[in-house]
């Protein structure tokens, strides 16, 4: 049982500002089904750049819902410039604190807010920049360095609590320790410079999102004509694990369908290094 404050429980059981704003002009979406939490933040910003309304939709645990709701309460009435200063710590503090394992929920709030402001200003956030350190959750070194600096993180466990990086297979723990050591050497005020200009690559979350889009747009409608369907089970590096459902599941040609059709479409439209595998070979 998590040690949630009364305010977290209240904001979870009676969330404020759930819903949609049809004419929102600043929308930020972060997270995914695969990660277990996601937030869509919708803001109405007036001509003076003041946030006049804020609503949210969240898929996630109690602290994710409470953090989202808290964020909407915090930004209402603020100017975009003021809102941009809100940190994940501010969100957690508003709620009287979050269990340390749940700090990533407040980080999700801050990221959605940033994304919404960028959306209002028509800027693309450089999320894919940097080196993907945690393959499981698609977290880059840029995000990790920022979390280390902003929240004064000292251990791998703390990085996981704040960013989720390292919370899956654990293979990146050595790299996380290196990042902690680098940050300690540079001191808290040091400017963060990416180690190298890494080639543009997709994080796991971006891959999942793009794959789902291709499935929805092209693959599912085609398969459904034959009484079949497809589910995305997992993405492990460049391996996309799927499950063929309905008529496809028992079809002798399912392997051909996967390789000749699904894989080809994904390579064309997402990443040319992807391979598709059935979850039950």
């Amino acid at each position: 049982m998590w040690d949630y404050t009364d305010k977290v429980k209240d904001y979870f059981l009676n969330p404020r500002n759930v819903g949609q704003i049809d004419d929102a002009n600043a929308v930020g979406e972060v997270g995914s089904l695969a990660c277990g939490d996601a937030l869509k933040l919708m803001l109405k910003v007036d001509a003076n750049e003041v946030i006049t309304d804020a609503k949210f939709q969240t898929f996630g645990c109690a602290s994710a819902i409470a953090s989202s709701s808290a964020l909407t309460e915090m930004v209402k009435g603020k100017s975009l410039a003021e809102a941009a200063k809100i940190t994940n710590e501010d969100i957690a503090n508003f709620l009287g604190g979050l269990p340390k394992e749940k700090m990533h929920c407040s980080v999700m709030g801050r990221e959605a807010l940033e994304a919404a402001i960028a959306n209002y200003r028509g800027i693309l956030l450089p999320k894919a920049e940097g080196e993907v350190v945690c393959e499981c959750f698609g977290v880059t070194d840029v995000e990790i360095r920022r979390a280390i600096e902003e929240s004064h993180l000292r251990t791998v466990e703390e990085i996981t609590n704040f960013t989720k990086a390292g919370g899956g297979c654990g293979k990146c723990h050595d790299r996380l320790r290196e990042l902690l050591a680098e940050s300690a050497k540079q001191g808290p005020k040091a400017k963060i410079i990416p180690l190298r200009a890494a080639p543009r690559r997709l994080t796991n979350i971006q891959k999942i999102k793009l794959i789902e889009e291709v499935f929805e747009r092209e693959v599912r409608p085609t398969l459904r004509k034959d009484g079949g369907d497809i589910e995305l089970i997992d993405v492990d590096g460049d391996t996309v694990i799927v499950s063929l459902r309905g008529a496809c599941g028992s079809c002798a040609k399912s392997r051909t369908t996967l390789k000749e059709y699904v894989e080809k479409r994904l390579r064309e439209q997402v990443l040319d290094t992807l391979t598709v595998e059935d979850d039950r070979p």
């Binding site: 995914s32 277990g36 959750f137 996981t160 589910e231 995305l232 089970i233 499950s243």
Partner: peptide, 14 residues
């Protein structure tokens, strides 16, 4: 941070 290993082994979608 990851769903149950049993659900994953059964191929239950995200």
């Amino acid at each position: 941070l990851e769903p149950s290993h049993v659900m994953r082994a059964m191929g239950v979608p995200f």
